[in-house]
Design a binder for these strands. Structure first.
Lengths: 195, 195
DNA sequence: GTCCTTGTTGAACAACCGTATAGTTTGCCC
DNA sequence: GGGCAAACTATACGGTTGTTCAACAAGGAC
């Protein structure tokens, strides 16, 4: 009888990352431990070291996976509205705007503000995030014949999005995805007009 | 020779809380350990158990201390502007809007979203926070003869404030206190008018 | 000066942490 | 069906975790 099934290295890595994120969603960074992640993934303790080398490397991989997931969902978004409208609808869809996912983000931010490697990666990712958002805002504004400081507005918008996420994470009843989306639209409307 | 100096229980508790917050500011929840807090406070390991019973109780006390600190600073704020203007100027003053303090908040939010006791306390405190902000907004709006949904606007504003704090925490160069304050004023201006 | 409350120490404890490593099993290749 | 790379298990290890507890000492009361 088979005692275990081998997986391709890439597949196993993905499975372990998934398990790590589940643990973080459930109990924050306190539940990001060798024992708990391995139990969640159904593997033995040694495998994390074999595939990732260390727990901090696994955390970095998990961080990257979160961004990949957003980018992946972005591709499949419907195209029947403006780019800005699409991005916002995506960010507040149940797939991304839910307690588990936002709890993971909150935990990762806390780690990023303390761990140099994670912080650098965060800044790289956020720079691209800001660039994309700036473009989307500029598009919407020019489509309405308006002139705005798109970069500044994008930064503000991103901060609001993050804050709405924190609120949903700690007190979901007060901040649904729909309400959060509406808040963002209200912020943008006076500047870029309808989109 | 004296081997140590006794402190009043209240004073010692305050000193330990202060040390705990220093540790959290430096290294997040990972540095919130018995050894590190005691070293920071210059006391022996047994004293935390004696004064707080457990580390989670110490964390709850530290959480409360953070709110007390904001309330205390609020009392000493100058009165030469509207209440809303005062509150915002206070929240983005260097005393409250700095990396150490915001790193503590970020860490505490992450814990609150995972620990039931902390989460309940957070909700209580935020309910009052929201109430105060709603009143301040309503005052400013009526002073300008405008009518707004003050409660909804207060919730949005608070989320923006939190998001700006996260941004400053992880990437201080992109979000100064002055810029954060301006962002909040820009959010409010279209609704409540000048304040 | 002696007592007594209580703030404080320091060590002991079991449980858990992340990492390293030696040995086993799997499944593909030839 | 034998060989082989590598995915995987299982255990051991030193260090750190939070908590407990008996003994000590400081400083006011009297």
């Amino acid at each position: 009888m088979r005692r275990y099934t081998r997986l391709d290295a890439a597949q196993r890595r993905a499975a372990v990352v998934e398990a790590a994120l589940s643990c973080i969603a459930r109990g924050g960074i306190q539940d990001f431990t060798v024992d708990k992640v391995c139990a969640e993934a159904g593997i033995s303790r040694g495998l994390i070291g074999h595939h990732f080398g260390s727990m901090s490397a696994l955390l970095a991989a998990a961080y990257g996976h979160m961004y990949d997931q957003v980018a992946l969902t972005a591709v499949s978004a419907s195209a029947d509205q403006s780019r800005l409208g699409r991005v916002l609808a995506l960010l507040f869809s149940p797939d991304l705007f839910n307690r588990d996912a936002l709890n993971i983000w909150l935990t990762l931010w806390g780690q990023a503000s303390v761990t140099p490697e994670l912080r650098d990666e965060h800044r790289r990712q956020y720079a691209e995030y800001r660039r994309n958002m700036t473009e989307a805002i500029a598009e919407a504004a020019t489509a309405n014949g308006r002139h705005v400081d798109a970069a500044a507005l994008a930064l503000t918008l991103i901060c609001l999005i993050d804050g709405l996420g924190v609120q949903h994470c700690v007190e979901p009843a007060t901040m649904s995805g729909d309400l959060a989306l509406q808040n963002c639209r209200d912020l943008l409307l006076p500047y870029v007009g309808p989109f």
